[in-house]
Design a protein around this nucleic acid. Structure first.
Lengths: 167, 167
DNA sequence: AATTTACGTCAGCCATATTGACTTATCTGA
DNA sequence: TCAGATAAGTCAATATGGCTGACGTAAATT
């Protein structure tokens, strides 16, 4: 059952049709790192009957009190219907409050309740601990290099929400 | 519709119950970076009637010719039944070949076909291009810092496959 | 010969996403 | 003022990718 030694392996890929060099190492490290990065919160959430989708919603609401539903849709890049189900559960179970926007009363501004804050912070603390362990003993430049790299991995082209109607 | 400026925001979290400092910035950058990292292959795959699951299987088979089904299960950390579905499609549509193990004939060693290799390389090239763009203009230390960070983000505790029977 | 292993399969379930169509309330601009 | 746009919610159907549980079969191991 010898482990497959994925990391630091020779590149045996047929690259006749591809570019000169493909960074398989970082591609695979990103896959494995992200897999384990989300696995820990997933476990904690499962005990509450929640999933990854609830985590994302609660996280961004907690981080941005008074967030509008539309903002959440753009951030998560999911549809209103997908969000609806998950958000409803979080509201019903007392993790998130909705209040009408003071200026635009069509809006339902979202706030994490105390219970919601506690869960959000608990999950974030686990993930942060993993990050800090991975940075442990490295100079500040390491975190800065990682920060810059991840930042530049993000699409900067403005995201357009798939037109629901108007087509 | 002003964008929510997620990055570099003040930490408004109630941390009474949490650790002194939570690295929200890297937590969120990881989410956004990974979201966009997989979104591009997803689009290309959708045109072929495949999904993210097919991508992962094809990728690791292509990278490790002669991989056993068991190895793939450990790498992806999914069940045999889940793998079965997507693997069968990839085999049926000529992206992956299965051949009996020369020494242990119970094994079905997996190989990407030429067609499979072409798709795998095409997808990897897109992801690699994104990575290279994110590293563009940075010194070699940046890639090394990222590599080390991601590597240390991976769980090192040996993964035990959920006992199917033997319980 | 008995047991274990590698792999596959049937059946059903769940979570998360999708598209499309429609409603309600509210805001905004000509 | 009122027509149209916008914010949000909802119903229904569908797809994908996971899961558990239960079996089956062939081949290797002890």
């Amino acid at each position: 059952m010898a482990d497959v030694n994925w990391l630091d392996r020779p590149d045996v890929t047929d690259r006749r049709a591809g570019p000169a060099v493909i960074d398989y190492e970082l591609i695979e490290l990103l896959f494995f790192a992200y897999r384990d990065f989300v696995a820990e919160p997933d476990q904690a959430l499962a005990a509450l009957g929640f999933g990854r989708a609830h985590h994302r919603v609660l996280h961004f609401v907690n981080r941005n009190p008074g967030l509008r539903v539309t903002d959440l849709l753009e951030t998560l890049r999911i549809t209103k219907q997908s969000l609806g189900r998950v958000l409803k559960q979080l509201v019903d179970e007392g993790y998130i409050d909705q209040t009408p926007g003071p200026v635009d009363r069509r809006q339902r501004l979202l706030y994490a309740t105390d219970k919601g804050k506690r869960l959000a912070v608990d999950l974030a603390a686990r993930q942060s601990a993993r990050i800090q362990a991975a940075l442990d003993g490295t100079p500040p430049e390491t975190r800065e290099a990682v920060r810059g790299f991840l930042d530049r991995m993000i699409d900067r082209t403005p995201y357009v929400v798939a037109d629901d109607e108007e087509s």
